[in-house]
Nucleic acid binder design. Structure first.
Length: 881
RNA sequence: GCGGAUGUGGCGGAAUUGGUAGACGCGCAGCGUUGAGGUCGCUGUGGGGUAACACCCGUGAAGGUUCGAGUCCUUUCAUCCGCACCA
């Protein structure tokens, strides 16, 4: 066996897999299927380490399941619509389509050398008309099924560029290009009725046993089910048409503590007042300044204005409350109007304090005085006493108080108990070019008319420019101006495109039949769905996954997915990021300056590692790349503190911090197996992994050492006896058991630690008996999911039949996994003082005798009587004195 | 503001889920190999303490439950992620 040359063997085995068609997914009714999917990439330009980690994880699962005998589907595609393509066109010229497809070509070429077990015959991009045309067909079906509607919604409006901005494009309340103050503006937009499924999407979370608990929790909180009371305030001195204001509250038990009512600046009443009152109009305009994101809205200073309108308290007609317009009341939640109880709601308390409104407690903490007013009393359900509750709810606390208050209000005819959800309908309209066109036409005669399916796909026009802001579709007469599909009159095509989340909400289903002339093929979908293991970043824990769960239900309703697939992802795994340290200095003004890894040098001085700038080394006449640094130079470096670079560990890779590691450089230097092994080895997959140059090098050294070891064994005479064969067989069985458990449990770092241990045992064994050969072949198989190329070479070299990638996963003989004797530590009063070695199944009474006869134990007992003797079989002994 | 998570040696992490804290890897140190450096091989490596043992301390902090706590409970501090038009 020659030297370890990854470039040579990796190309060779990739070709062999390709020729054997190992990764082509086959619809084989006789075999169980397994569908592994990693969240598909956005084609941003080049692949990064995060991609390598994500796809290697999926690949490990795919290869492992294939070895287990499953018919595996492991596809790849491109989430190809989105803003960056338009931004590139604006900044550099060119067309989003060209930018996107050339990025796809580059990234695909970069992914190939990783040796992933992907079935490339199923590849597609969401910007392919064949894909988005099917998406348009589903939109029409969903429209017919009543899942689509239009309504007004607020957007970020840039008044200078005259365009809609994404939240990301609003920086400190200003447009990212124009720097103009952003306003909130209403636009008529398309919505999917995801709220029809609020209850179901919540209830079904319980069935997702193989999803991370935290993701289910986040989704549940996002859907935000609450039980409350909806009731109407009767108004006094309100404009015509506003005799009542509907309010929703989750705390009807605090109604007696009401001190004001507040409506959203977007509430119809606010709009009516705005039209006639310039002071209110100015205030509402003030509220509409700034972006639309929840973070901005909820951290903004609380602003309110008394409208002059009054409402009657529902429990006491003589009690009038002022109605404020308040910027923290959201039109999207509840009814867009609230009642304020400052004593028991922190936000209301802040508001009441600011505007001098009364604060009166409904309940007090146990033992506190009844006269507690003007203070905020947090809800502690166990320890409250009602002092101003209303009849029927006096004795209740906590949730019971809410339930009792709702019942009492219903009895009195004041309002109704309502189950409310925080989840809003999904607004999908985007005023942008590079997205899936919404297939409808606006006709002056017929109104909104769906396109005919025969006319699909509605293709994006190619002849567009991005020299001025806004949506080029809006100013493209030959594309925009059409005749009505229904009556033939002159009409206007919808120029909004769909949110790119729509594209990614069903791609997993399309992979099961990527070339079908309908969105899906029900036979294929029935075989391949669901995705058995889905893997991706935790940043998608809420939106993408919730939208996909909704879409699967909508697809079922419109006949595009079987009912078994309404929860499309059986198991979910959320992986962490790849981070890298940052090298930072500060300039004269104290601003941080970042340095590239190749511009710094790490030196070992007196057992410490000192990081210095190469350029500064040159200044003191030290050759920055020479390995030979004199002791004088080293001590000079220690003295020069300003020469040293601050190392900030574990930062997200970003160009501005200059800590991006390009996977292609790693593959060129060490090969794909090293890159794959390293990203799987150090950290648990759900956590961030820090890329270190030394770690990657160590991985390469390990693989080289293994290569040499296999070569050495191959050169030995057959049956050269090294270590005990029995020991080898046991070690092999244990490795199979532990690595299998590691992969099954998504603990790849532990699986790799076990592989290191196993390799260390083999390196010491130094023989070439059949037991050794079996051990090495097994090692190759266990490594194959992680490092498939070197595994193939070792497998072949050690006489494995066929391709390692197609060999059946090894099984451990259970008899070889049990140890006959066990070492029991002995604690005395909880401190470990001695240990004994006993047969595994020895009776506790026997163990006690041996333990008490142990000389260390006798020494520590020092003749004191034993109060208690605890034996945990096979684990530990504790003697209490 | 709301929601979710994470804190263990110099570093990444392990700990059979309440039972020997620090597996495995990196780094560092010593020895060997080498003309030298790197490579490679062997050994050591939580802190204090000792000639070496012994012994003491130790899982962000402070309390608690237990024969026994990294793991369970209470309080607290720090850091990271998401928030509906980034994907």
């Amino acid at each position: 066996m020659s030297r370890y040359e990854p470039a040579v063997i990796e190309a060779k085995w990739q070709q062999a897999w390709g020729e054997a068609g190992v990764f082509t997914a086959r619809h084989d009714p006789l075999r169980p299927k397994y569908y592994v999917l990693e969240m598909f990439p956005y084609p941003s330009g080049r692949i990064h380490m995060g991609h390598v980690r994500n796809y290697t994880m999926g690949d490990v699962v795919a290869r492992y399941k294939a070895a287990q005998g499953f018919s595996v589907l492991h596809p790849m595609g491109w989430d190809a619509f989105g803003m960056p393509a338009e931004n590139a066109a604006m900044e550099r010229g060119g067309h989003p389509k060209d930018w996107t497809y050339s990025n796809i070509a580059v990234m695909k070429e970069q992914m190939k050398p990783l040796g992933l077990s992907i079935d490339w015959s199923r590849e597609f991009a969401t910007c392919d008309p064949e894909y988005y045309g099917q998406q348009q067909a589903m939109f029409l079906d969903m429209m017919a099924a009543g899942l689509v509607y239009r309504k007004a919604a607020v957007v970020n409006w840039d008044p200078v560029d005259m365009t809609v901005l994404a939240n990301e494009q609003v920086i400190d309340g200003r447009g990212w290009r124009s720097n103009a103050l952003v306003e909130r503006r209403e636009l008529t937009q398309w919505f999917f009725k995801i709220s029809d499924y609020s209850g179901e999407l919540l209830a079904a979370l319980d069935g997702l046993k193989d999803w991370p608990e935290k993701v289910r929790l986040m989704q549940a909180n996002w859907i935000g089910q609450s039980r409350g009371l909806q009731f109407g305030f009767e108004t006094v001195a309100a404009p015509a048409g506003f005799a009542r204001i509907e309010v929703y509250t989750t705390r009807p038990d605090t109604l007696m503590g009401a001190s004001f009512a507040a409506i959203s600046p977007d509430h119809p009443l606010a709009k009516a007042l705005e039209a006639t009152d310039p002071v209110i109009a100015a205030f509402v305009a003030e509220c509409r300044r700034g972006g639309t994101s929840a973070e901005v809205l909820e951290t903004a200073e609380k602003l309110g204005m008394d409208t002059g309108v009054r409402v009657r308290h529902p429990l006491d007609a003589g009690w009038e409350l002022p109605v404020y317009i308040a910027n923290f009341v959201l039109m999207d939640y509840g009814t867009g109007a609230i009642f304020g109880c400052p004593a028991h709601d922190a936000r209301d308390y802040e508001f009441a304090t600011k505007y001098g409104l009364p604060i009166e407690a409904v309940f007090v903490g146990e033992g506190e005085a009844d006269g507690l007013t003007e203070a905020y009393v947090p809800m502690k359900s166990e320890k409250v006493r009602y002092v101003r509750g209303f009849a029927g709810a006096e004795v209740q606390t906590g949730e019971d108080a809410v339930t009792a208050a709702i019942a009492e209000c219903e009895r009195r005819g004041i309002g109704q108990g309502v189950t409310n959800y925080r989840l809003r309908d999904w607004g999908i309209s985007r005023q942008r070019y590079w997205g899936c066109p919404i297939p409808v036409v606006h006709c002056a005669v017929c109104g909104v008319v769906p396109e005919k399916k025969a006319n699909l796909p509605i293709r994006l026009p190619d002849d567009v420019t991005f020299d001025i802001p806004g949506n080029p579709l809006d100013r493209h007469p030959t594309w925009r101006d059409v005749s009505c599909p229904k009556c033939g009159a002159a009409a206007r095509r919808e120029t909004d495109t769909m949110d790119t989340f729509v594209d990614s909400s069903w791609y997993f289903a399309r992979f099961t039949a990527p070339h079908a002339v309908t969105p899906t093929d029900m036979t294929e979908a029935a075989y391949w769905m669901n995705v058995d293991q889905y893997i991706g970043g935790v940043e998608h824990a809420i939106l993408h996954l919730l939208y996909s769960r909704f879409f699967a239900r909508a697809m079922n309703k419109t006949g595009h997915l079987p009912v078994e697939a309404i929860e499309p992802f059986n198991a979910l795994f959320t992986q962490g990021m790849v981070t890298h340290e940052i090298y930072k200095t500060t300039d004269e003004a104290g601003r941080p300056v970042y340095h590239l890894p190749e511009d710094i040098r790490k030196l070992a001085i007196d057992g410490n590692v000192v990081t210095v700038l190469k350029s500064r080394l040159a200044e003191i006449d030290v050759d920055p790349d020479s390995s030979d640094v004199s002791d004088e130079a080293l001590s000079a470096i220690t003295l020069l503190a300003d020469l040293q670079v601050e190392v900030v560990p574990s930062a997200k890779m970003s160009k501005s911090k200059k800590n991006v590691v390009d996977p292609m450089n790693i593959i060129a230097a060490f090969g794909a197996d090293t890159a794959r092994w390293f990203v799987m080895s150090d950290s648990p997959p759900e956590r961030d992994v820090e890329w270190t140059a030394s770690g990657a090098e160590a991985t390469y050294k390990h693989l080289s050492r293994l290569w040499t070891l296999c070569g050495r064994i191959g050169d030995m005479p057959a049956d050269h006896k090294g270590a005990d064969d029995d020991l080898l067989l046991r070690a092999t069985a244990r490795a199979v058991h532990e690595v299998t458990q590691g992969i099954e449990g998504f603990a790849f770092n532990k699986a790799i630690a076990k592989l290191y241990e196993f390799t260390n045992i083999l390196a010491k064994a130094d023989g070439s008996t059949p037991a050794m050969k079996l051990a090495i072949r097994t090692l190759a198989q266990l490594m194959c999911p992680m490092t498939p190329h070197i595994a193939e070479s070792i497998w072949t070299f050690q006489g494995g039949a066929g391709l390692c990638a197609q060999a059946a996963w090894p099984k451990a003989d259970p008899a070889l996994l049990v140890d006959t004797t066990v070492i029991l530590p002995i604690q005395i009063n909880g401190k470990r003082r001695a240990e004994i070695s006993v047969p595994k199944d020895m009776a506790a009474s026997e163990v006690e005798k041996i333990a008490l006869a142990n000389e260390d134990v006798i020494k520590f007992l020092a003749g004191q009587p034993v109060k208690k003797f605890i034996v945990v079989p096979g684990r530990i002994i504790n003697v209490v004195i």
